[in-house]
Design a binder for these strands. Structure first.
Lengths: 219, 219
DNA sequence: ACCTGAACACCGTTCAAGT
DNA sequence: ACCTGAACACCGTTCAAGT
């Protein structure tokens, strides 16, 4: 699994083949089938390996800290293995690390007073945001220095009419994206903060957390 | 493009090949290369086709209605073509429908008083949520009736120890997911509402919308 | 139990040749 | 301009055979 993840990290998921993986391990391709059922089974294992790199939520911490650390840690692991996000949700048989992680997260929320339904709401919202953000982040056309400006300028220069046809996109490109120091990654905390605050408000509305404890969670 | 999307809708993206697409069109595989540069070019066109099915935001509407309709319409189009979400963000050359859509959305936000930075924040947050939600939604192991209960029970029964090792997952499965009538799709509005409310609050904090107009947007 | 070579049914794409 | 057949360098996987 580690060898497979390493190859996918370096060359991309598309160029990971049973033959190349075997080559890296110094064996023949067919020998792999004694350790995994098929390539799908290999991908299952690789995804579970990534999940094992995400911080395990710690019971007893306040729920906002748990969700924030979980979101940031998941994002770190998923950007370290850019191939993971495109296959993790479509794996139908979750591995042990995946199950352990989800169970711990739900446990923290339940311990903090979340109802089952509200915990499901919260997990869906956070996971959707994190997965969707990473999905966009890992597929940005960055150059070697991690800069998006060059690629953006390429698109704009391919069609000089573009600035006229799409004035708002052109404005955003010129005044924000092409500015030195802009990085899409920095958009992450804004959305995460809005989501955590929103969950806090929803909890109070649902009467699942006493309003007077709100002061505990600086926002 | 329409033929390619139809094949991918029916048989999945993995089984879409240049040879099969040509067969469906009654020509030889190599003839396709006179209409697209390569398979990547074909995928670009397919993604742009999906974008063309998303409602174009209408200038002048209030921004919450625009963002909500955009989110729901995007989700509809993306679930109609389940293969799209896995490739749409990694396309590096956006097509005309894609650019037109993004430009119109930014225009609506700018017209409603959003700064450029805040519009970028809002687009990133909404798109991350919608894409991430659909990414999870389209890869759920649903049976023919669209029910997830069977698959969930399969996982639980594969490992009877599972309920002991992962009590919170087991509880959520038994008391929520396996209940008749539960559908993951119904989680969508909860997160969307939290995000729209949060953006409203962020706008007011940033002084980009006068607080007294808040009454216009029922939440 | 673990590994191997040959083979099968596929891929995307190039190229020279047709109309 | 548009299409075609043969060919090349790949795939995942099966199977019978080895140690």
């Amino acid at each position: 699994m580690r060898a497979a993840a390493g190859l996918a990290d370096r060359d991309g998921l598309a160029s990971l083949s049973m033959r190349k993986l075997a080559g890296k391990l110094g064996i023949e391709a067919m020998s792999l089938y004694h350790h995994v059922k098929n390539k799908d089974d290999l991908l299952d294992g690789m995804v579970d390996l990534v999940f094992s790199e995400i911080n395990l939520p710690i019971a007893g911490q306040d729920w906002q800290a748990v969700l924030q650390d979980r979101a940031e840690s998941a994002r770190t692991a998923l950007t370290r293995h850019p191939w993971a996000i495109s296959i993790m949700d479509s794996r139908t048989s979750p591995g042990p690390a995946t199950l352990r992680h989800q169970d711990a997260a739900i446990g923290c929320l339940r311990g903090a007073g979340f109802s089952i339904a509200m915990a499901a709401h919260a997990m869906s919202l956070i996971d959707s945001y994190v997965h969707g953000f990473v999905l966009q982040e890992v597929s940005l056309p960055l150059d070697d220095t991690g800069d998006i400006a060059a690629a953006t300028q390429d698109i704009l220069q391919q069609q000089p009419m573009l600035s006229n046809a799409f004035p708002h996109l052109a404005e955003m490109a010129a005044q924000l994206i092409l500015q030195p120091g802009y990085a899409y990654s920095n958009e992450f905390p804004f959305g995460l903060r809005i989501i955590l605050r929103g969950l806090e408000a929803a909890l109070v509305e649902a009467g699942e957390v006493p309003p007077q404890t709100l002061g505990m969670y600086p926002s």
